[in-house]
Write a protein that binds this DNA or RNA. Structure first.
Length: 298
DNA sequence: TGCCAGGGCGCCG
DNA sequence: CGGCGCCATGGC
């Protein structure tokens, strides 16, 4: 993607403006349930603030913007070294959308997919941290999004306070060692419920090397990737798919939760096989999920 | 009050 | 292998 980057360092906080980003949508990307650590500012879903990889920024897209947005709290170097990759700005939405539609086996299936593509286009699959993603989607199981956010926020704040973190208002995501120090009982007291044991097991296995993120990242076989991440207690097929998609950018993953079951049953009464979508399975899944959750019509 | 939420485990047939 | 109850919690 040929991006034009303008850096403004005149104010107290650095601002980087990104132009030529296709139809990347801040609102859709941060409201499609792939990350729980960014929140709208002043109730505006197109302006979100949060922390990733220990850096806190605000992504802002105004009403009259479609091909551009601003990053408040990052200079150009920060954009080059992190946010360009994090936001996956080098994937072309238009190319993805036509590939998804062309992969549909029948005209009826293509039409059923088209409205979801039109509704969700602009979503990017974020390149999140594998450990943070693992914790997030362990917490997500049999849970709803507001409560997932609340639990993760408590977890971050509690660990930051324990570590005497320099900026407790924007706490970083805790490490495996942080969770081990909390202990299973400490995790339970943060209202994680029966997932406390899962979170503790994940921390132990990331810490010990029984689960190796680099090995998963470098493994091209999605079945083997699923096998490796599923060593963690509480990681079943759905959570594994989310971790692979959002934490390792394995875009051939296709998570199916209760919303997706509804979406697939409604749009594809004759069944749906995601495999022909190849590397676009993950994005197509996000389109279907987002449309099912938020689209008022259809 | 019961049902639902980006499910998985253990057990049972 | 498939089905089913259970697992904490909070909003509705």
């Amino acid at each position: 993607m040929n991006l034009i980057i303008e850096e403004n360092l005149s104010g107290e906080i650095p601002v980087t403006r990104v132009c030529g980003c296709g139809n990347f949508s801040v609102a859709k990307t941060f409201d499609c349930g792939q990350t729980f650590r960014f929140s709208p500012v002043d109730g505006d879903p197109s302006t979100v603030r949060g922390t990733a990889f220990g850096r806190t920024v605000t992504f802002r897209q105004t009403d009259c913007e479609s091909d551009s947005f601003s990053i408040i709290g990052s200079d150009k170097a920060g954009f080059d070294s992190l946010w360009r990759s994090y936001l996956d700005l080098d994937t072309d939405c238009a190319e993805a959308d036509s590939a998804i539609l062309n992969a549909m086996p029948t005209p009826a299936a293509r039409e059923a997919m088209r409205t979801a593509v039109e509704y969700g286009s602009g979503i990017h699959i974020l390149r999140q941290d594998p450990w943070e993603t693992t914790v997030s989607f362990l917490v997500s199981q049999n849970n709803n999004i507001p409560r997932i956010r609340a639990i993760l926020d408590r977890l971050c704040r509690t660990c930051a306070a324990r570590n005497d973190s320099p900026n407790p208002a924007d706490p970083p995501f805790p490490t495996p060692d942080d969770l081990i120090r909390l202990g299973e009982d400490g995790l339970f007291r943060l209202k994680t419920g029966y997932r406390a044991a899962y979170l503790f097991d994940a921390a132990v296995k990331f810490r010990s090397g029984e689960v190796k993120p680099d090995e998963i990242r470098n493994c091209p076989d999605s079945a083997r990737c699923t096998e490796m991440i599923s060593k963690i207690k509480g990681v079943g097929p759905k959570v594994a798919a989310c971790i692979l998609l959002f934490g390792f950018h394995k875009t051939e993953a296709f998570p199916v939760d209760v919303w997706m079951k509804r979406a697939l049953a409604r749009r594809f009464p004759n069944g749906f096989d995601p495999k022909p979508l190849g590397k676009w399975q993950g994005l197509a899944q996000q389109y279907l999920y987002y449309a099912e959750r938020w689209s008022k019509d259809e």
